[in-house]
Design a protein around this nucleic acid. Structure first.
Length: 419
RNA sequence: GGCGGGUUGCCCGAGUGGCCAAAGGGAGCGGACUGUAAAUCCGUCGGCUUCGCCUACACAGGUUCGAAUCCUGUACCCGCCA
């Protein structure tokens, strides 16, 4: 088995860590239990979480035992973010999210065998804590000077301010690490690099109580052009939940990775061996237009998250919709399937083009749809539209039923007549 | 608790009575160029029954022919003092 620490380093998955030599030795020891946490702060995980999810999968495959924590307690408090105070979510809502996230995480690690993962929820030990216990047994170990020194706290103090609730968040997360050490013998925590402050708080807390533990973080995934990673072509977050982000959109997201980014993404996310990844990086350098790396990345991740069947449908749809071929040459079942993947709008009769673009979700409002037409960025069956308020000609209907709507170069939706 | 400052469109940020749907920048969107890439240039960027109308400058009320701009109250934020 290849050295997992070296593998992670080669992939660029280690940003910060406690003593690297010691961490390397620890990870090489097959008896280690580690933990990674996800707060229940939304109804689904998104691809920003994928780095952590897949790193957990790698560690388990390397022989380590995962504790997958979903933060039912910390989700009720809110990790401070630099823009300002969060709105508290109702407990029953958070409880629902905990369930969802747990089931979403399940497929990525194995809950069987000797390295079986364990799902944990910090509400189990935090919920029962009394204020006295919290302040005497836990709070006493936290110097406020250190808490104030954390980057996020400083940012908030010099800007939007911070409530005691969010200020205390780090204490809860630190206590999680100690609790998992006590209950499961967990000695390693990792998380996203934005969690480094919270993670070191946990390491310190454990050490103050006599437990020697270690930690590392994975880097924030970025794009070479400096824009934010993790948004679809139309600006939506890319969720793992297929009802929130369709497998088609998910596939398209990865497929559209830039040349300057795709190599890094393969290293972060792909389970291909090093040689194959280097081969794909070379392919990108030599024949970028073929986009072999993008295709491989998109197919592998869509399969991992949504399964083989979905992936087959989605790749077929992408080929049909972006293919050179004349749309009229596609057979009805192909058109139907492809448009269903892209998002199909059913209408009893054809309204104006602007309405179609709005209803299909390609444009947020009628005004935006009219603007799109005026800008020359609206197409029906690959023909540029010039009149936003007229319905498309029935002659355009493919197989007397379908229309392919396109906004810009690559955002596509379908229309089907329901007759 | 006292005093002072602040709250503008997705974000930052101008604007102190009419010329303001609101400067400028960023993001986003579209076009050209391409490879469903990047960079660049150009355009666009509240809504609608779109040559016009409606809703908007924290919230509620008021002054005025007319308010993002003035007054009153409420909420929240920041700073100094206690």
């Amino acid at each position: 088995m290849t050295d997992i620490f070296q593998d992670l380093q080669w992939r660029g998955l280690i940003k910060d860590s406690t003593d690297p030599d010691e961490l390397a030795r620890t990870l090489a020891d097959g008896t280690v239990t580690f933990y990674v946490g996800f707060d229940a702060s939304g109804p689904s995980l998104h691809i920003g979480h994928l780095t952590q999810i897949l790193t957990a999968r790698r560690l388990q495959r390397a022989g380590l035992r995962p504790l997958i924590l979903v933060g039912g307690a910390t989700g009720l408090i809110g990790d401070p973010k630099d823009t300002g105070e969060r709105t508290l979510n109702p407990p029953e809502v958070v409880a629902g999210w905990v369930k969802k996230l747990q089931s979403q995480l399940t497929p990525f690690v194995s809950f069987e065998g000797e390295r079986a993962a364990t799902a944990v929820d910090n509400l189990d030990w935090t919920g029962a804590l009394s204020a006295i216990e919290f302040l005497r047994d836990i709070g006493k170990h936290f110097p406020v000077s250190q808490m104030l020194n954390r980057e996020i706290v400083k940012t908030r103090l010099s800007g939007a301010g911070i409530s005691f609730t969010e200020f205390s968040y780090q204490v809860l997360q630190a206590n999680d690490f100690h609790e998992l050490h006590r209950r499961y013998g967990c000695t390693v925590q990792f998380g996203g690099s934005d969690q480094w402050g919270n993670i070191t708080a946990g390491v310190d807390f454990c050490r103050r109580r006599g437990a020697h533990v270690q930690a590392f973080t994975t880097p924030l995934v970025t794009r070479a052009d400096g824009t934010k990673f993790g948004k679809t072509a139309d600006g939506q977050s890319v969720w793992l939940d297929p009802d929130m982000t369709s497998p088609y959109a998910f596939y398209q997201f990865w497929f559209n990775s830039g040349d300057a980014d795709v190599g890094r993404y393969l290293r972060y996310f792909s389970f291909r061996p090093r040689e194959e990844i280097e081969e794909l990086e070379k392919a990108t350098a030599e024949r970028p237009a073929a986009r072999a790396a993008q295709r491989a990345l998109a197919e592998e991740l869509t399969t991992l998250v949504h399964g083989e069947r979905e992936t087959a449908q989605v790749t077929a749809a992408s080929r049909a919709l972006f293919g050179r071929g004349d749309l009229t040459e596609l057979d009805p079942s192909t058109v139907d399937a492809a448009l269903s993947e892209a998002g199909l709008l059913s209408v009893p009769e054809l309204p104006s083009v602007a309405t179609l673009f709005k209803e299909s979700g390609l444009c947020a409002s009628l005004s935006e749809a009219r603007r799109a037409v005026a800008e020359g960025g609206a197409y029906v069956n690959n023909e540029r539209v010039t009149d936003a308020d007229a319905p498309p000609s029935p002659d355009l209907l493919l197989h007397n039923r379908f229309l392919v709507l396109r906004r810009g170069k690559r955002t596509i939706a379908g229309v089907a007549l329901t007759t």
